[in-house]
Design a binder for these strands. Structure first.
Lengths: 205, 205, 205, 205
DNA sequence: GATGAATGAGTCTTCATTCAT
DNA sequence: GATGAATGAAGACTCATTCAT
């Protein structure tokens, strides 16, 4: 009985789940192209190949799409982190390598998820969006804190928080430049500068 | 005819100039409150105490207002710079002091011109706005370059440009945090971190 | 085959009947809360704990729900009438008592069936709704006529019809006030006035 | 100077004033046809021969149109009342005549202002509409109270209020029937009954 | 029958911009 | 130049109804 009834339910949910992924993917695409503000829900629906009404079957409003996308990104980041990150090796790893790999991961993530920058690499957000987008921000912040804590043994949690915030803000400020770089060389140069900036900040913080 | 109309023309121009200032001031106020995207031209007109039609007598569209405001800020920045900055003393001044005073000036400028952040402290801009807002960005950039050149004697113009760009981007990333700081203490702490970040970056660049 | 399917069919019909009651009950609840126009079929389905699709398995459209609900009320009214009303005693009962008990019954019915007022106590209806709702209206009308006929011996059927219509319209006009009365005292006072109004009208008609 | 500057201002206001009348007239027409709920703001704009945007230059939303229309009707009713009503002669006029002329006026008003019934002759209203429509209701109520006060010398203000409310509700209940009467004869018959109903109620109240 | 996803026309409203006066 | 009315294309969102499973 369990099996028998579980299947159809799952099937239905599966269809919805697929649609949700579809919508989120479409949203990410359009956000990446036009930015969050300039993206209309109808444009998302069109990009997803569905009708405006269908979109609202799954999301109550535009902000909820941003929130869900943000949560999706948060999940992906967490997943990637779990795969990549070796907490054991972190303590004695050199800061240089840690920063390098973290920045590389973030850049790679941005390239693989073009919508991410619309939710992450924006320093100036309306309150409603800021709230919707909090999940991904927090995951990034928590991840950075986790890296920093063993590096700043004498500091209070608040101090490390602040340092993480500043480091993230530096990255945030540089991200659009990196992503919009006209060629690979420019991007590499900018990435190198970003590494320098973050590293030197962390060393003198 | 020339003589006869000369004075009224000047008067008209003068009046026009005043109107333009009026509009720009209103625009800055509303930009500061709601951000550029969420600001309607009607809201600007209302804030300026004029009719929407009048606004369009002076500005062809919303972007042009941003451009003019940006140019106004560029002018103010240049003026302030001319008053404050002593090129003679720069060469042998210590970088620390230079960075400190420059950042302080920029913060002060932001506080004195609340609309500035809507045009400057935004890392992610639609193309049309980015272009409109270029003037102020360039003045800032040029100012920073001017400071940096004597500090990086061996570097090419391009390299210094890049360093300036990165430094600015760091500031840009931090500015919203600074301006939205809940209290003076937080702001001071953030400002100190920003100083550290810029300084250490410049030192290791 | 006939035999084999006979019972399941009945079962199905029984289940269907239950579903229909379920839907009608839900509809009445939501109508009572928001009024007919503001009630969405999805809201009814949700209140009934079923899916929108299921609802349309039993009712072709929103108006049909109103019609069925109206028919249900008509049935209930008829049933109550049969239980309560003693045609034998009516002829010589005093009009005063008849009016009083009839109005009391109607009020009670309204209180017991909160959805009734959305279909009955509305003087201004779109044609489609008016038609759908006719059944209950007619039962009420017929009931009143039945009471009035022996009271107006000399009058033609049309005249009695008219008198009944007017009496009902008076009740209809007062019903929302009665049902929305802020407290019991106010309601009682309004009920008394309504009695006076109907009684004096009937006496001078 | 006064004259000179007053004119253009008035001219501009006049244009707006005319538009407002135009919109209210259109709204009344559509309300009369479809009822308030079923009337869309776009339909009003179309009926008024203007664009949807223009409508919102004068009214913030649909409710505000209802309110303005209600206020217009309130004004008209007051004006008519001032022209027609002779307070001096009221005291000793017979109730019969007063009721007759009042009901006749109200019927005439309804016929001359087809939108009125959508705002007045509706017993069951959503809260937002009820509030918007209050002005006209109050004028009618006040007018009736004014008539009734000398007729009910011993009663408190609250009692007279209640009596007026009931009388109005009777009229309200009958109005749709009157207005939708298929022919003049039916309407006259209904009007006669309404007179009887109101009069007998007032006599026995 | 049941489900919930799908539809798409339609709702109210906003806004950059233009135009008559 | 100034005014404020005019425009109409969007925008976010809703809802009665239908359809695939």
């Amino acid at each position: 009985m369990q099996e028998a009834s579980a299947r159809p339910v799952r099937k239905r949910q599966a269809r919805g789940e697929r649609r949700i992924q579809q919508i989120l993917h479409a949203a990410a695409t359009v956000f990446a192209e036009k930015g969050y503000d300039a993206t209309s829900t109808n444009a998302i629906a069109t990009e997803a190949g569905i009708s405006p009404g269908s979109l609202y079957q799954f999301f109550a409003n535009k902000d909820e799409i941003a929130r869900a996308l943000s949560e999706y990104y948060a999940g992906e980041l967490t997943r990637l982190r779990a795969e990549t990150f070796d907490p054991a090796g972190t303590a004695d790893a050199d800061l240089d390598g840690l920063v390098e790999s973290t920045l590389a991961s973030l850049l790679e993530f941005n390239l693989a998820h073009p919508g991410f920058k619309a939710l992450f690499a924006r320093t100036d957000m309306p309150a409603s969006l800021r709230e919707a987008v909090a999940p991904a921000q927090q995951v990034v912040h928590a991840g950075i804190v986790e890296i920093l804590v063993p590096r700043f043994p004498g500091r209070s949690a608040e101090e490390v928080d602040l340092i993480a915030t500043v480091a993230i803000q530096i990255v945030r400020g540089m991200t659009p430049l990196l992503l919009d770089a006209p060629d690979e060389a420019t991007r590499a140069a900018l990435a190198a500068q970003l590494r320098t900036a973050v590293l030197s900040y962390l060393r003198s913080a």
